[in-house]
Design a protein around this nucleic acid. Structure first.
Length: 882
RNA sequence: GCCCCCGUGGCGAAAUGGUAAACGCAGGCGACUUAAAAUCGCUAAGCUGCCGGUUCGAGUCCGGCCGGGGGCACCA
């Protein structure tokens, strides 16, 4: 035991000049130690990844951050989890790639530019510098030599080239369509970026605008994106389900209806989509979207219809609005001939609830078996005819007048379909429609193409030129990159690129005439759709990546990030990989082999009596009550919620790392809560984690004093106590390895607490026990390496090693030490515990049974009765049944 | 409305269908200290949300409720 100066219990720094008065062992000085080891790792480039075909690779990636200013606790949790995997795999002998970069384009930079008069580029790069320093202070095993920022032309030039290739292959196109417009950010949004009718960033209700925009043909891969989900067996079930729901595959039929006007004159055909062709005989009306071309055509001569269309357009798409909006229809001067019933016609409406973007923008209404159609038919007094009936219902009394019947049943009132079940009827009617040439069975997806134009400055320029003579012309590859100009102003609303005096004026690459650059930029989700590929060849100028290197490192073996990207980023990345495959850049289908979605970091919320939110620093506890520090007024403690600036329940990682050290922050992040679940940040929890770091250091220091030197030979035999210690250590190796592989970090932490307790309690009496103590500590230090790397490195050195722990191999468990010689077997009577037996491991069943029946508790419980049955589960349990 | 996940001591949580609550936080008692902090030792707590089923045996599997959270949502 070493004697040291008294030290501050929080920071571990010595009170210089104050002599030590007690026998308190030296405190672990995390500040000096953590900084020291980070310097060593950096100097030796320990975590630099180099392609090496002789070794198996492992690519660990955490979702790269947006450089918003400072890192938050969510980052700390995410990157700690990734670092545990990276360091563990490294120790297991894998050639690990663990890179980091910056998702650097995006609106906050522009907003900052407008508010603080700072250029988005300056703002972004300053934030990157700050956050990089913060990440470095965490002691992550990152290969910083591969760092990239998506706002760098050396990155986005390749993105522009890929876009041109996709365009050439028909995977990118321009189209006029109704789109989602965010009125706050002044830009269009993709479907995926509208949450409950509101912009995903601003929360503003989106408006609908008809604009010509760039789209990527994600629907081209709809079926593959769906079916390949089944093969992603290292993805959370939840994420796969969400993607499947988003893609939304429906089987059904397209049916053609002949239209006539009131006089019976032919007015062409109307194509509708339905998932319920089995209910065709229940049709009582047709409904067109207000945006349907036929509606528009009729509106030209009908002011009433024009007003109706305008009215529909006003209704927002917010969930609440949609739910409460009444079904509205406008009767069109048309009749539709039923394709299966000669002579039958139904009326035709334009209706506000029919979406132009899904199916054909037109439906047939079957009010008996669809809730919406029922509501509509009731309002306009249209016939409601039952064509499906529950199996045991009475045909005379069964009615759908009040409530539609939407479940499976028996078809009625439907000619050749009568008596069939719904599924059979669907198949039969589709066959008949196809035979007659009036319809066909089809598959419909909910997924829409990815709208990628954004009317904003701080993004990757879309490499296209508009020429009056030639139309839209791609920027020639040799002119790439199209670089974002720096000299822009943010003094008025709209897109600064559009306002730029010269940038957009350019000669047409085809005819040389006056032309105009595309001033829209790409959705930043494009930037993040391939950055993991770029990490495999970060400096390459001639291509996005080198084929060989990319082939060696990809796919990402373990991807880690928030579940909020379950659809957006993860679906787009899966699409981009397929688009690259389509243009022969790769042969891969999927980018991420394993995915883990970590939970959020939460904290209690505090409210002052005036209703304002308070930060954790602003509150204190007095007499068991929570009060505001400033004036002792009472504070209302709210439930634990995700840390957010608006609720002020944030804790700054920087401060935690400064006060307690990176290892403490990491340890706390891994303790207690399963990583996929939300974690509640508590001051007491952090303090506990910190105390454990100190305790480990002390236990190790004390144990070192009791140990033989590193070169002491392994004794021939061990005492029982020594063997027990060895068992504990080796069992921990096996258990911990399994826990890390399974992302059970909280259990891994618990095992380390146990082993620490065991080592701390060891009082070796003989050489064997001393040797076992050294063995246990050597194992222990290696096991904490992935979690608290600085402390582990320090103890590794203290154990006498001259190599780095970061380069040391993972310990191997001795199988002989994983099994106990004696086991405790539970003895039950009718399933209820009555006692236990200490038996030799793998004792014969008969022996266990006899021993159990001889137990006094069992003898008493039997009361002389003969057991009916005795179930023996070796090494576990004996159940006596009477 | 549809789909998914979760309900275990005061709290966070463990538990291949086999001794429920490992491990941590908070609590209680004691030791050390002039005292406190720190540290060390000891310690209390619980019909696994409710009802039923399968089983020799259910926190775990099945069905139905109740409560909490999340995803999608006029997608025909």
């Amino acid at each position: 035991m070493t004697r040291g100066a008294a030290a501050c219990i929080r920071c571990g720094l010595s009170f210089l000049g104050i002599p030590s008065v007690s026998s308190t062992p030296a405190r672990y000085n995390f500040r000096e130690t953590e900084a020291k080891w980070r310097e060593v790792w950096e100097e030796r480039q320990t975590f630099r990844a180099v392609m090496d075909r002789s070794r198996p690779k492992y690519y660990v990636l955490e979702m790269f951050p947006y450089p918003s200013g400072r890192i938050h606790m969510g980052h700390v949790r995410n990157y700690t989890q990734g670092d545990v995997i990276a360091r563990y795999k490294r120790a297991k002998g894998f050639n690990v790639l663990h890179p980091m970069g910056w998702d650097a384009f995006g609106l906050p930079a522009e907003n900052a530019a407008m508010q603080n008069k700072v250029h988005p580029k300056t703002w972004t790069y300053e934030n990157i510098a700050t956050m990089k320093a913060q990440l470095k202070s965490m002691g992550l095993s990152l290969d910083w030599s591969r760092e990239l920022a998506t706002c760098d032309p050396s990155y986005y030039r390749h993105q522009q080239k890929m876009f041109l290739d996709f365009w050439n292959a028909g995977l990118a196109y321009r189209r006029e369509a109704w789109v989602n417009w965010d009125p706050v950010d002044n830009t269009v949004l993709a479907n995926e970026q509208v949450i409950e009718g509101k912009g995903w960033r601003t929360g503003a209700p989106v408006e609908r605008r008809k604009l010509t925009q760039w789209n990527l043909k994600i629907t081209h891969f709809a079926d593959e994106l769906l079916s390949r989900l089944d093969t992603l067996d290292r993805w959370p079930e939840k994420v796969r389900l969400m993607q499947a729901n988003w893609i939304g595959k429906s089987r059904g039929a397209r049916v053609f209806w002949d239209l006539t006007d009131a006089s019976g004159a032919d007015r062409g055909k109307l194509e509708i989509f339905t998932t319920r062709p089995d209910t065709l005989y229940g049709a009582s009306f047709m409904a067109l979207s207000p945006e349907h071309p036929l509606t528009a055509e009729l509106a030209a001569k009908d002011p009433g219809l024009q007003r109706f269309i305008a009215e529909c357009r006003k209704t927002g798409t917010a969930a609440a609005e949609v739910e409460t909006a009444e079904k509205q229809g406008y009767r069109l001067p048309l009749l539709a001939r039923h394709p299966l019933v000669p002579g039958k016609t139904v009326v035709v409406y334009a209706a506000n609830f029919v979406l132009m973007e899904y199916g054909t923008g037109a439906i047939f209404g079957c009010p008996g078996h669809d809730e919406r159609d029922h509501e509509f038919a009731t309002k306009y007094s249209l016939p409601i005819l039952p064509v499906v009936m529950p199996k045991d219902a009475d045909p005379k009394s069964f009615s759908v007048a009040e409530v539609p019947f939407v479940e499976d049943g028996v078809i009625v009132n439907s000619d050749f379909l009568d008596g069939l079940g719904v599924d059979d009827a669907k198949a039969r009617v589709i066959a008949r429609l196809e035979e007659m040439g009036v319809g066909k069975g089809t598959v419909q997806y909910r997924l829409r193409d990815w709208l990628v134009s954004r009317q904003r400055y701080w993004g990757c320029p879309i490499p296209a030129i508009h020429c009056e003579a030639c139309g839209v012309v791609p920027v020639p590859a040799e002119h790439l990159p199209v670089v974002l100009p720096d000299d822009v102003t943010f003094d008025r609303p709209g897109n600064p690129l559009d306002h730029h005096p010269t940038w957009k004026h350019v000669a047409c690459p085809k005819c040389g005439g006056n032309a105009r650059r595309e001033t829209d930029t790409f959705d930043t989700f494009i930037d993040s759709s391939w950055y993991f590929d770029r990490f495999t060849s970060p400096g390459l100028e001639t291509a996005p990546f080198d084929r060989d290197e990319n082939h060696y490192w990809m796919p990402v073996d373990q991807y880690i990030g928030g579940v909020e990207h379950a659809i957006l980023h993860l679906l787009y990345s899966r699409f981009w990989t397929r688009a690259m495959r389509e243009v022969q850049m790769t042969s891969r289908d999927e980018p991420f082999d394993g995915l883990f979605t970590q939970g959020m970091v939460c904290h209690e919320t505090y409210r002052a009596n005036d209703g304002t939110w308070l930060t954790p620093e602003e509150i204190g506890r007095e007499d068991g009550k929570v009060v505001r520090v400033s004036d002792k007024s009472p504070v209302e403690v709210g439930r634990s919620e995700k840390m957010s600036k608006s609720k002020k329940n944030v804790v700054d990682p920087d401060q935690i790392i400064r006060d307690y050290g990176a290892d403490t922050a990491r340890w706390f992040m891994l303790s207690d809560s399963p990583p996929e679940r939300d974690l509640e940040w508590t001051e007491a929890g952090v303090a506990g984690a910190w105390r454990f770091q100190q305790r480990l250091y002390r236990i190790a220091t004390e144990a070192l004093a009791l140990m033989p030197s590193a070169d002491a030979g392994r004794p021939e035999t061990f005492s029982d106590a020594a063997t027990e210690l060895r068992r504990a250590a080796h069992k921990t190796i096996a258990g911990l390895s399994a826990d890390i592989e399974a992302f059970h970090f909280n259990k891994a932490v618990a095992r380390l607490y146990e082993l620490a307790n065991t080592i701390g309690a060891a009082a070796p009496q003989d050489d064997g026990a001393k040797w076992a103590l050294r063995e246990a500590l050597e194992i222990f230090v290696r096991l904490i390496g992935p979690m608290t790397p600085h402390l582990a490195e320090e103890l590794w050195q203290a154990l006498g090693h001259t190599t780095l722990l970061a380069d040391a191999a993972w310990p191997v468990a001795d199988p002989a030490l994983l099994v106990d010689e004696t086991v405790t077997v539970a003895v039950q009577l009718n399933g209820k515990l009555r006692g236990t037996l200490a038996l030799a491991k793998d004792a014969p069943k008969e022996f266990a049974e006899r021993a159990a029946l001889a137990l006094p508790e069992i003898v008493r419980g039997l009361e002389g009765r003969e057991p009916k049955r005795v179930i023996v589960v070796p090494n576990r349990i004996v159940n006596v049944v009477v």
